[in-house]
Amino acid sequence: MRLRTFHPQHPFGSINVTPMIDVVMCLIVFYLIVGKLAADQRATIRLPVSSTGVEEKAQETLIINIMPTRANAPARYVIDTLDVSPENLEAAIRDRLLDKQDVVVELRGSRELTYAAVAFAMRACKEAGVESVRLATERVGPGEAGWTGGGTP
C-alpha cells in the first residue's frame, strides 16, 4: 500500500475549484433573475385574451398596471411597482413623460375589470397628452378558449 506523498506546500492537496465555480454561477444567475423580476414594472395580472395583436419592442415604455380590488372599490393603478392614487394618476403620467419622446404607454388591465377602470386610466393619459396607448393582452389563437361568447370568461 502506498501512502499519499506529503507535500508541505499543499497541506490539503490541490482544491478543485470547478464545482465551486458552477455552484457560484448558478447562484449568480438565480439572483439575477430574481432581481430582474423584482425590478420589473410588470405586476402579475391576468390579462384579457386576444387573437390579434402586435409584438413589438418599444424603446421606452410607461407601464400602467390596473388591478382589481375588492368588490365595488376603485381599481388600483400601479406604475413602477408604486401604487398611484386615481387623483394623482394624471400627474404621475405627466411626470414620467416629461422631456421624453417616443414613450409608449402600455395599459395592463386585468380581465376582472370593467371598462370604467380602464377608461379612467385612458382619460388620464389623454389629459397628459398621450394620443395612443397599447393594451396588453394574452395571446390566443382564433377560435381558442376565451374568443367566443359575449360574457365574461
Binding site: S50, R111, T114, Y115, W147, G151, P153
Partner: peptide
C-alpha cells in the same frame, strides 16, 4: 365607445 359597466375583456374582444 363602451359603457362603464362593460367587462374589460369584452372591450378587448370588440377591439380584437
Amino acid at each position: 365607445r363602451p359603457e362603464a359597466t362593460v367587462p374589460y375583456p369584452d372591450v378587448v374582444r370588440a377591439h380584437d
